[in-house]
Design a protein around this nucleic acid. Structure first.
Lengths: 112, 112
DNA sequence: TGTTGGCATGCCCGAACTGACATATGGTTC
DNA sequence: GAACCATATGTCAGTTCGGGCATGCCAACA
């Protein structure tokens, strides 16, 4: 990722609170949009995986990755790239259209 | 990115021909979907930047990156991550919804 | 209680990505 | 042609990310 003023942000991406992020930190709109986007995808990944009754280990195998990394992906860990995130989504069977839907879901703040 | 059997693929991502990729190479469906996705985004980035009458150097400044890297992003260079690609799209003013549209655009083979 | 299974966390270090620079190509204007 | 601008391409040192292992946590259950 490498975002120059990578100061505080480090804390955020794994502090949750979906619909905010930039509120209590000096994030630019783009930066905020970006991490919220990742969190939204991470969340839908876990949802989808469970719906498929798949374990993290099984998914890891498909990705030629490891259980621990899958856990980090779902947790929205800052060391996880969008690349791996999206490839994971494809691996649990999501189509481009479905992924797009999650991304568009956008400025929605809470699930329930 | 790091895709285990990163064999030939190297050639593809910068060989273009939008609607194919996996056709003449042994790519899995997911792998193919993934790089086509990146190419679609890369293409719409250039389109959008030009529409904004912005130069690569200007965009690079916003991203705190360099002109040469922006060029690679738009070219769909294999050394460019989805992260940078998406952050670039946000930097040229695209909304999540617009990005989603490009992604959903999906299995379309040719433009005109 | 001991065991098993699924998930989370920390770490290492090799692989991939990044910014920056140098340089090349192509177009425009004088 | 020279000067200038936007873009393309190659390279590389420094940073980030990746797989995988070790380990911790917790719930289920016999």
């Amino acid at each position: 990722m490498n975002m120059k003023p990578a100061k505080k942000k480090r804390l955020v991406s794994r502090g949750w609170v979906v619909g905010s992020a930039k509120e209590f930190l000096g994030l630019s709109d783009d930066e905020a949009a970006f991490i919220e986007l990742k969190l939204a995808l991470a969340h839908s990944l876990k949802e989808r995986r469970l719906k498929q009754r798949m374990t993290q280990s099984q998914l890891a195998k498909r990705l030629e990755s490891s259980q621990s990394r899958v856990a980090k992906v779902e947790a929205g860990d800052r060391t996880v790239s969008l690349d791996l995130l999206v490839r994971s989504l494809l691996a649990v069977g999501m189509t481009r259209r479905e992924i797009a839907k999650v991304i568009a879901g956008g400025t929605r703040t809470r699930a329930a």
